[in-house]
Design a protein around this nucleic acid. Structure first.
Lengths: 140, 140
DNA sequence: AGAAATTTGTCCGTATGTATC
DNA sequence: AGATACATACGGACAAATTTC
C-alpha cells in the first residue's frame, strides 16, 4: 500500500473520524477510546500515525489520556447521560474480524466489524449467547 | 544492536515456534503458555515483540488470553471442526470460550462450547453472521 | 480479609530501515 | 531533500485482573 495523503495528512483524517464518533455518540463521553492497537488494526495505520491523531484530539480537549489506562472521551456538558447500565443483556461494540468472518464478508482479517451481543437467560442462568456481526462499511 | 528484520520478522518466528509447541504437544491444550516474562527471557525479545507474537496466535485461535492470568493453549483450529471446501450457510462446531463467554456461562476460558453459525446473505453478498454459543452440557 | 506477587493491558518515548509523495 | 507514513523493535512506567500468601 502506497502512501497517498492527498489533501490532509492521514493522522488528521483519523483524528476527524474519531472526533465525529465522539460527537455523534458512537463513542460515549466518559468511555475509553479503542486502544492504540485496536486503532492500528482498524485504520491500518502505524502506531506513530495513530498517536499523532490522538495527540490532535488531546490538544483539542476531545479526549484525556491516562498513562496505562487509555484515552477517555471528554464529557460534554450537554451530553452528560450517566446511563449506568449494570449489565445489559444486549450491547453493541466494535471488534476485529477473525479470519473466517473476513472471508465471509470479503474483507481483510483485522478489519473492524460491528458486533451485537444478546444474552439469553433462562431461570437466571445464561442459556445462550448470540452474536451478530456486520461489516462496518456503509458511508463513512 | 540495530533492528534488522531481514526476511521474517522476529515476532512471526516466535509465533511459529510457539504454535509448533502447541501442535506437537509440548504445550498441551488447556494449559497456560509461559508468561510473557518467561518468553522475554527465553527468546531475549522485548515485551512488545512477545505480545505481538501471542497476538498472532490469538488471531488464529491457537490461544485464548485472559487478563491477569495468561494465555491458554486451545485445541488446534483445524481439529475443532470439519474441514470445509465451501462455506455453508449454517454449521455447528466446537470452539473455545473466550473470557467473556466463560464469565457469562460460569465456566473457565478455554473450555469447549458449542457454536452454531448462520450466514445471512442478501443479493449474494453476506449481510451478517450470527453466532450462537451454548455450553456443552445443556441442549443435548 | 487483606496485602503482596504475578500477569496481562495500555500508554510513552525512542530508534532503525524502507517507501512514497 | 524533506515530509509523511509504514513496519519492526527496544525499554520503561502505570493500570487492572488474577492468584498466592
Amino acid at each position: 500500500m502506497p502512501t497517498p495523503h492527498y489533501g490532509q495528512p492521514r493522522y488528521r483524517a483519523i483524528a476527524a473520524e474519531l472526533r465525529d464518533r465522539i460527537e455523534n455518540g458512537a463513542i460515549r463521553p466518559g468511555t475509553l477510546l479503542p486502544a492504540e492497537s485496536a486503532l492500528i488494526a482498524e485504520f491500518r495505520a502505524s502506531r506513530g500515525t495513530i498517536r499523532q491523531a490522538i495527540a490532535v484530539l488531546r490538544e483539542a480537549r476531545f479526549v484525556v489520556t491516562e498513562h496505562g489506562r487509555g484515552s477517555i472521551a471528554s464529557l460534554r456538558p450537554h451530553e452528560i447521560g450517566p446511563e449506568k447500565d449494570s449489565e445489559p443483556d444486549a450491547k453493541h461494540r466494535e471488534t476485529v474480524a477473525d479470519p473466517e468472518l473476513a472471508t465471509l464478508f470479503g474483507i481483510e482479517a483485522g478489519t473492524v466489524v460491528i458486533e451485537r451481543q444478546n444474552v439469553i437467560r433462562r431461570n437466571g442462568a445464561v442459556e445462550k449467547v448470540v452474536r451478530i456481526y456486520r461489516p462496518l462499511q456503509a458511508g463513512t
